[in-house]
Design a protein around this nucleic acid. Structure first.
Length: 280
DNA sequence: TCCTCCCTGTTC
DNA sequence: GAACAGGGAGGA
């Protein structure tokens, strides 16, 4: 379930725990959690973690360049999908039943272990170098970061779009990082029916929608994300933005604005909750 | 452009 | 013991 605010929170909480530390061991307990196209994880041994970042829903462990090396853009990308988690434990910690990969860390404090846990095994890790990055189609197709791009971006992209507006928001090549929760919340705040064809929205309404997307993302980051069930920060804390949901997970309950019962629809293969009266 | 599938813990 | 959760790949 981690979307942009959750991954951002994980990156922020993980960074101080691993920054500057050396990777001295790697174990992929579930080999298929290593994305096809990844470099062998063994290449991580001996590398230092420069910092933890994020791109869309991907958490990124940026590696410091090798002494005198030119591979500054090497990083380990982690896609948590629905149930993935990243934790740091002490050196004596043992893998749990859902642990898919473990990295041993040394330097800058007591030895520690970084765990990638993922109950449903949808998540993956991918080690990337500047040489292999051009071969990663998903990465290269990622759209702009919603918190760093111009508000007109949605209006620009929609001209080419054919589908429903919600499908457009979920399309990672349009905006990177928006998932089911924040698409529903932003559409509600903008008063737009998620099933509406994207092309029927004018430029000003699309810009308003984009502002609402940014608004819910920023509010959620402030609350350290939304914890439905699995998501935790790298420190193990739950987020709080789930308490601010106006539509997501509230099907059948009263609309916070007009009191009408919220309805459920299926759009882009996802459950969609909306107010039939407020969203048009 | 839309639908199905992958996967497993939780809920009904 | 079935329905459900859903990001993204792949196929219709």
């Amino acid at each position: 379930m981690p979307e942009l605010p959750e991954v951002e929170t994980i990156a922020r909480t993980l960074d101080p725990l691993v920054r500057g530390r050396h990777i001295v061991g790697v174990q992929a307990l579930l080999p298929r959690c290593v994305d096809k196209g990844s470099l062998p994880l063994e290449l991580l041994v001996g590398r230092r973690i420069a910092r933890v970042g994020r791109r869309g829903k991907l958490a990124l462990l940026h590696l410091a360049p090798r002494h005198g090396g030119s591979d500054e853009a090497s990083f380990l990308a982690v896609h948590l999908k629905m149930t993935g988690r990243l934790f740091v434990y002490g050196a004596d910690a043992e893998p749990g039943p859902h642990t898919r990969a473990v990295w041993d860390l040394e330097g800058g404090g007591d030895p520690a272990r970084l765990f990638f846990d993922d109950a449903r095994t949808f998540g993956y890790v991918r080690l990337v170098s500047p040489e292999t990055l051009p071969g990663w189609a998903f990465w290269n197709a990622l759209g702009p970061e919603p918190l760093e791009c111009e508000p007109e971006i949605l209006a620009c992209r929609v001209k080419e779009a054919r589908g429903k507006i919600k499908a457009l928001l979920l399309d990672q090549t349009v905006l990177a990082g928006v998932g089911n929760i924040y698409a529903d919340e932003a559409l509600f705040r903008a008063g737009i029916d998620p099933r509406r064809p994207a092309r029927t929205l004018g430029a000003s309404l699309l810009t308003e929608l984009f502002r609402r997307v940014r608004e819910v993302l920023l509010e959620s980051i402030e609350q350290c994300g939304s914890s439905i069930r699995d998501y935790r920060t790298a420190r193990g804390d739950a987020g709080a933005f789930q308490n601010a949901f106006r539509v997501y997970g509230r099907s059948g309950q009263a609309c916070v604005t007009c009191g009408a019962p919220l309805e459920t629809a299926r759009t882009a293969g996802r459950t969609t909750v909306f107010c039939p009266r407020c969203q048009r």
